[in-house]
């Protein structure tokens, strides 16, 4: 954790993601973008990339852009590759003396554009070693097209293509562990975070990601009130419970060293997290206790594996 983090001073920095965008109230995507861009040094410029998704269609509707920095959106599955091209251009033009000053490269994609359709171009960008930061705002389904399941949707969650029916109780598969997969690319910096307290975790990880030379990846849990079915004001509490139940642990992998960012004093039961969200409502019906047990078991296993990787004994 960065010692110099000062919440008030950080908030006093000039906003780089302007108000007036059209994201829903209580949406995590805008919070992720604001929080990550806040970690840029004020004197540095940035080119912001974006995969097609809620964020893109809500933050750059011609002729209005919410970004103070340069911005590029090309397609759903191409955010990694497009920003690779921008970064390559920067290197070439810098070498030819056509550009002065520091420009950083940060791209945002939802879980659809990151875990699924854009996975290949993300993997390619990480492997080739471009000096860029890929930020996934993970809201665990294809929200832009109307809450379809993704490989990031957790087991049992209701989505419009994994509906809860009389024969199938929501999504059948477990969530893909993308943060681990990107860590397996052996890139210099990978981290998992969300919106907790005074945003220190998000800020310090974003800063490390942006200013660590080479490719970096941030996976930010970014709840969606429509898809997860919660009252908009409950977003911070859902994030807190995701962390306190170890459903979404905070950790980072820096040059191959795994480090736990936060260990709950007392791990809360997964019900506390699940019961706040309509997408899990069916799990609380009598006779469905096994679902909650299955989720608890899966969360426990993943938590133990993570502790092991972080060499941490609690």
């Amino acid at each position: 954790m960065e010692r110099t983090y000062h919440f008030k001073h950080t908030l006093e920095k000039k906003e780089r993601f302007a108000p007036g965008h059209r994201l829903c109230a209580g949406c995590g995507a805008g919070i992720a973008v604001r929080g990550v861009l806040r970690a840029l040094r004020e004197e540095d410029r940035a080119v912001v990339g974006n995969a097609t998704g809620c964020l893109e269609v809500s933050s750059f509707l011609y002729p209005y852009t919410a970004y103070e920095d340069s911005y590029i959106h090309t397609a759903f599955e191409s955010a990694g590759a497009s920003l690779s091209g921008v970064e390559a251009a920067y290197n070439a033009l810098k070498r030819k003396g056509k550009i002065d000053g520091t420009v950083k490269f940060i791209t945002f994609g939802g879980d659809g554009g990151t875990y699924d359709i854009g996975f290949q171009s993300l993997s390619g960008a990480m492997e080739r070693g471009h000096d860029l930061t890929y930020v996934c705002y993970d809201n665990e389904a294809y929200m832009n097209t109307g809450i379809q399941r993704s490989s990031s949707t957790p087991r049992f969650a209701r989505a419009t293509t994994s509906p809860v029916g009389t024969a199938v109780p929501g999504k059948s598969q477990n969530k893909k562990n993308l943060t681990d997969i990107i860590a397996a690319h052996n890139v210099p910096y990978v981290a998992q975070t969300t919106f907790i307290g005074n945003f220190r975790d998000l800020y310090t990880k974003a800063k490390k990601a942006i200013y660590t030379p080479g490719p970096s990846f941030l996976n930010v849990m970014a709840p969606c009130p429509r898809g997860w079915e919660y009252p908009t004001e409950k977003l911070p509490e859902i994030c807190r419970l995701a962390v306190e139940t170890c459903v979404w642990p905070l950790f980072e992998v820096e040059n191959g060293v795994w480090r736990l960012s936060y260990a709950p004093k007392k791990k809360l039961p997964v019900e506390d997290y699940l019961k706040m969200q309509g997408r899990f409502r069916h799990m609380f019906k009598p006779g469905n206790e096994w679902m909650i047990e299955a989720v608890q078991q899966s969360v426990d296993e993943n938590w133990d594996k993570l502790l092991n990787k972080c060499n941490t004994n609690l």
């Binding site: 920003l83 690779s84 390559a88 070439a92 290949q120 390619g124």
Partner: peptide
């Protein structure tokens, strides 16, 4: 003096060219 980007697919080669040309480079 070129940045050569050996991408992982043609979808990405065109995407990278778009990014590069948009950035102000000849791709």
């Amino acid at each position: 003096n070129t940045e050569f980007v050996p991408v992982e697919s043609e979808h990405s080669s065109m995407s990278a060219c778009i990014g590069a040309e948009a950035a102000g480079a000849r791709a």
